[in-house]
Write a protein that binds this DNA or RNA. Structure first.
Length: 852
RNA sequence: GCCGGAGUGGCGGAAUGGCAGACGCAGCGGACUUAAAAUCCGCGGCCCGCAAGGGCGUCAGGGUUCGAAUCCCUGCUCCGGCACCA
């Protein structure tokens, strides 16, 4: 039994685990040795580009940043141990509004605010022990970076991928122009400031994202989460159908013969078109309006225009509209049908005009009810009366609907009928098959100072003149006068505005709009490869060698903005001959988001931010890292709660004790020093080694599958097993030693400091020279250690667990069945009955006796 | 409304057709200590029972199966996305 005096001595001999002493020392050592600097050109090992979404330098690095970065860093270390040359860069998404708001509020320059935040965040990131390649860092607000935004813009301009157009744009009173993706919700509020968004007609710069719609819908060759793919597919919104021309009918006020083109996905319902609706902005509206109707129509147009500017209420508000007092001719049957305008028809989608089929479209149905218009059923399931009264629009579901009330097409299957009708009309030059998309071109102009200046010049004589390459970058002026308002200060900066036209040399004016900051993040991972290159944005040899990115990790909130823009940029850059591939990220993982304890997004203003420095000070970075990985599945996120961090810290303490004090015995444990009942030292050593190798096998699978929480649980189990043998004859054996070694290696990616410290002490104790644990190879599983000689099989009767038996590992199903039926307990439960069936399931994993 | 995802002890979660609740937190009991903290050992879904044991149990209801947290159908709740897209 325990010798108390000796134990006391043992316990005082080992020093306490003190992360604050260990961690900074190793961080300094790793930095000094350049352990994380990637040799991008000379290293012969296979490359692995691991990218994590770069942060915005808000200045408050909170626990959410750790949640994002820690598992990625563990993965970087894990891949390095597998012999990969891992590139794991970091940078800062440094343009954007908060810097300007801070400058407006506190005076000073956005640059100063941004750079001081970056400085703070660099220090905090280093305290995590993250293995970022700091010497490849990118800061997008640096002229050395945004210069290449400008250069790429000019290449896109040459390639016809950038253009300037007048357009009704979404306009936020605070933030100016927004991309469509930046307008949120039914009420159409700004994604940043939540102000109500208006429409304005402005000349703006666009990138032609629509050129790649079909390619963007194709995800072959990339392994992305299903929800992100679906969101992108929905956002692109492809629908197949036809465009059909309706002629206007002549009347005493206009000659008719104008063509109104509509888009429909259901040409089979054309016989049910009983009226037409144009968007209020439709160009034919003034011409078609009957003089008697003009006042009402103008009033409605004006109201609709205001309404899009004011709040747009829910989609189920009552339908409104007015008749133009003109008729159109249905091309399939020559019927004259009335033309309306209504705001439920959008000018920006399809052709801005629809044929209304009230019987088979909910919105048209509602409109028809309200205005007393004819509702004519033209598709029906077999057995439905063609003229049965309708309470609701009937939306056909499948191809087994048949046409009715459609003349010679009656009885045809709906989809075949649709095709036939389109073919027939196409032959007459009145229709053509057509695919429409919801996706629009990307509006990139922003009326802000703190972004990349769009490199064009407006000359009275030469019009729009691109800034020549050798005059890049167009720099932001170093002084900025906000004059207390949110208006773009570039508009008032004469030194910036005045420029000579590069073509004619006459005085001209610079563009003052800057680019959407999503431009910056659409290609930054290429720039990481050659951040100081002043000859080109991307070094072609480096891009060839290092991209596409093997693994990208980041939040799902970027599904339709950043991730779609990045795919667009990659394709556009490929078409400009800058890179050779067309998809940027081979694999994507969306981690969840850590919320405040209140379940809301963490933000300073809500006061729900968890400061990691405080936790690091108390528990050490390794504990915080491990806890964030242990909390739950990485893709889940959830509200922050530090409950339970003590358990993770205890685990690291136990590892510390196991490594440094294998023979210690705890006075509190009555079994201390004795082997588990019925086990001798040989069996104990074998069992320990088996546990170690099984853990290794399972932990590898968990790392590969991003299942860090179960990975850590398995390491805890192994530590618990080791603890059971601590102080016994097994402790200190070769198997013990091997288990400790494996435990440290498996722990190294997740808790890099403590594993490095214990590793170095072991080397020291063995008189061996120090080599970092992070430079070790990931260990191999010994299959012979994992095999077992017996196994325990649960036995069910009618699906209820009743017994367990232990059989030799190679027992045949017949032998297992015989063993089960010989069990006393089973005999008693069967009570003389013979099982109807004996299921030996899963190759002998479980036995189920079925008895009636 | 449409499209995704989820619902398991007091809590975070594990098990994705085969022993429900791994691992951890909180809790309870014990050891050590003058004491507390720390540490160590043990218990731990709910109900009945001293116990052995039995019954119930993965949002609700139904189904498939020898066997369902897991697959299918219906409904409810929560989270995310889209929202008059013809």
């Amino acid at each position: 039994m325990t010798d108390t005096a000796e134990t006391a001595e043992t316990r005082t001999r080992i020093e306490r685990y003190d992360p604050t002493a260990i961690e900074p020392r190793w961080q300094a050592r790793w930095a000094e040795l350049g352990l994380h600097d990637t040799d991008l050109t000379g290293d012969p090992r296979p490359k692995y580009y691991l990218l994590t979404m770069y942060p915005y330098p808000s200045g408050d690095l909170h626990i959410g940043h750790w949640y994002i970065v820690t598992p990625s860093d563990a993965l970087a270390r894990y891949r390095r141990m597998h012999g990969y040359n891992v590139f794991f860069p970091i940078g800062f998404d440094a343009f954007g509004l908060p810097a300007e708001n801070a400058a407006i509020k506190n005076g000073g320059h956005p640059f100063t605010w941004t750079m001081s935040n970056i400085e703070t965040m660099r220090r905090q990131f280093r305290s995590m022990g993250a293995t970022f390649a700091w010497n490849q860092e990118v800061v997008t607000a640096d002229p050395g970076y945004y210069r290449w935004n400008q250069w790429l813009f000019l290449r896109f301009l040459e390639a016809g991928l950038a253009y300037r157009a007048m357009s009704a744009v979404d306009w936020c009173p605070n933030d100016g122009t927004l991309a469509r993706e930046q307008v949120e919700g039914t009420e159409r509020r700004c994604w940043r400031c939540h102000a109500l968004v208006e429409k304005r007609d402005l000349e703006q710069w666009f990138l032609r994202t629509t050129k790649y719609v079909d390619e963007l819908l194709d995800f072959t060759g990339i392994d992305w989460p299903e929800p992100v793919r679906i969101m992108q597919i929905n956002w692109i919104g492809r629908s197949e159908g036809a465009e059909i021309d309706f002629d206007t009918a002549p009347d005493q006020h206009q000659p008719g013969g104008d063509q109104i083109r509509v888009f429909t996905t259901r040409p089979d319902t054309l016989f049910g078109a009983t009226f037409m609706v144009l968007a209020p902005e439709h160009p034919l509206v003034p011409k078609l309006t009957h003089p008697d109707r003009r006042a009402e129509v103008d009033g409605y147009v004006e109201q609709a225009r205001r309404e899009t500017e004011i709040e747009r209420l829910s989609t189920d508000r009552a339908k409104t509209g007015v008749a133009l007092g003109a008729q159109a001719i249905n091309p399939v049957n020559g019927e004259q049908i009335p033309i309306f305008i209504a705001d439920y028809v959008l000018s920006g989608y399809g052709t801005g005009a629809i044929m209304a089929v009230p019987a088979h479209d909910e919105r048209d149905f509602e409109f028809a009810r309200r205005f007393g218009l004819e509702i004519r059923r033209v598709v029906a399931t077999p057995g439905t009366e063609a003229d049965a009264p309708m309470d609701d629009a009937y939306i056909a579901h499948a191809a087994d609907e048949r046409l009715v009330n459609s003349g010679r097409f009656d009885g045809m299957l709906a989809d075949a009928g649709g095709k036939a009708i389109v073919e027939w009309l196409t032959g007459q030059g009145r229709a053509e098959p057509k695919v429409t998309y919801r996706l629009r071109d990307w509006l990139i102009s922003r009326q802000r100072y703190w972004g990349t200046p769009i490199p064009v010049i407006y000359c009275e004589r030469d019009g729009i003149v691109p800034v020549p390459d050798d005059q890049l970058p167009v720099r932001l002026p170093e002084t900025v006068d906000y004059a207390g308002s949110g208006d773009n200060p570039l508009n008032h900066d004469e030194a910036f505005l005045r420029v000579d036209c590069p073509r004619c040399g006459q005085p001209a004016r610079r563009e003052t709009d800057t680019m959407d900051t999503f431009i910056d993040s659409s290609w930054y991972w290429y720039r990481y490869l050659s951040p100081d290159d002043d000859a080109a944005p991307v070094d072609p040899a480096m891009a060839e060698r290092w991209t596409p990115v093997e693994q990208y990790t980041g939040g799902a909130e970027h599904a339709v903005m950043h991730l779609l823009y990045s795919r667009f940029f990659t394709k556009a850059m490929a078409d400009c001959g800058l890179i050779e591939h067309r998809e940027p990220f081979l694999r994507l993982f969306n981690q969840g988001q850590i919320l405040g304890a209140d379940g809301e997004r963490m933000s300073k203003s809500r006061g729900n931010v968890q400061d990691p420095d405080e936790l690091v000070h108390r528990y050490g970075a390794d504990t915080v890292r491990l806890f964030l990985m242990f909390m739950g599945p990485w893709d889940q996120g959830g509200p922050w709660s530090p409950t339970g961090i003590g358990g993770v810290h205890r685990f690291l303490n136990r590892v510390w004790t196991l490594v440094l004090d294998a023979h210690g015995r705890e006075p509190g444990d009555p079994e201390a020093g004795s082997l588990p009942a019925g086990e001798d030292a040989d069996a104990g050593r074998a069992a320990l080694r088996a546990a170690a190798h099984r853990t290794l096998r399972d932990v590898s699978v968990d790392y590969d599958g991003f299942r860090f929480n179960t990975m850590i649980a398995k390491l805890m189990e192994l530590a618990n097993t080791l603890f059971r043998y601590r102080g016994t004859e097994v402790a200190g054996s070769a198997e013990w030693d091997e288990t400790i070694r494996l435990l440290l290696l498996m722990l190294a990616p997740a808790a890099p400091h403590i594993s490095e410290e214990l590793w170095s002490r072991r080397l020291d104790a063995a008189g061996q020279p120090w080599v970092s644990i992070h430079a070790q190879a990931w260990p191999e599983v010994d299959p012979s250690a994992v095999v077992e000689s017996t196994r325990e099989i649960p036995v069910q009767v009618n699906g209820k667990l009743r017994d367990r038996i232990v059989v030799p590992i190679d027992a045949s199903p017949d032998e297992i069945e015989a063993a089960v039926l010989a069990r006393e307990r089973i005999v008693a439960i069967l009570d003389g009955r013979t099982p109807d069936r004996v299921v030996v399931a899963g190759g002998g994993r479980l036995v189920n006796l079925v008895v009636r």
